[in-house]
Amino acid sequence: MSSEVATATTQGHTHRDDAGTKLGMWLFLFTELILFGGLFIIYAVYRFSHGAEFELAANELDRLVGTVNTIILLTSSLTVAMSITAIQEGKKNLTLLLVGMTVVLAFAFLLNKYFEWDHKIVAGIYPGSPDLINKPQGVILYFGLYYVMTGLHALHVIIGMVVLVVMMFFVKNGTIHKGSFVRLEAGALYWHLVDIIWIFLFPLFYLLH
């Protein structure tokens, strides 16, 4: 590994170095992974100590909503991955279409999430609510984590959407093109990370029983 990198740097750095940019992006993704990792550690510990109550609480969540959202995110990951191929082939309009679809799917995901949260809040299940306070402690912990983890994930979805919209502008004005698309790649990598986190959140919150 060292020798390959060493020869690469002999090119000097007046060149654009896409591989370096991508390396930076991957390192950033690791920090995101560990950020959620902290939450997963908390989840693991509380599920270990309050297993039965977690299962009880999970009954409140609609498995169908979760499944639909999973499919939506997987599909959005597909479209953004395909957009890389499209830009590599120099198909500008197809790229725009695919990234645009990703953004629309992200929005659908958020809409779904909004209704799900709304449903819960109307039912009196939200942090600090009188209904929740009187439930067993494992249930309080479960919903605490549910709101924090899906909330933080939704925040990442929103950030990802903004990033992808900016990328669409770059594609449109020609900043991103067949010969230079590392930014779109970086945006896509971020989007896939958002997807991966959901891949774990989904079974841990929706599929307990």
Partner: peptide, 16 residues
């Protein structure tokens, strides 16, 4: 699957 194909890990330098 997402890492290796969608995120191109399979086609990148081993270092990644």
């Amino acid at each position: 699957l997402v890492l290796s194909i969608f995120m191109h890990l399979k086609f990148e330098d081993k270092m990644y």
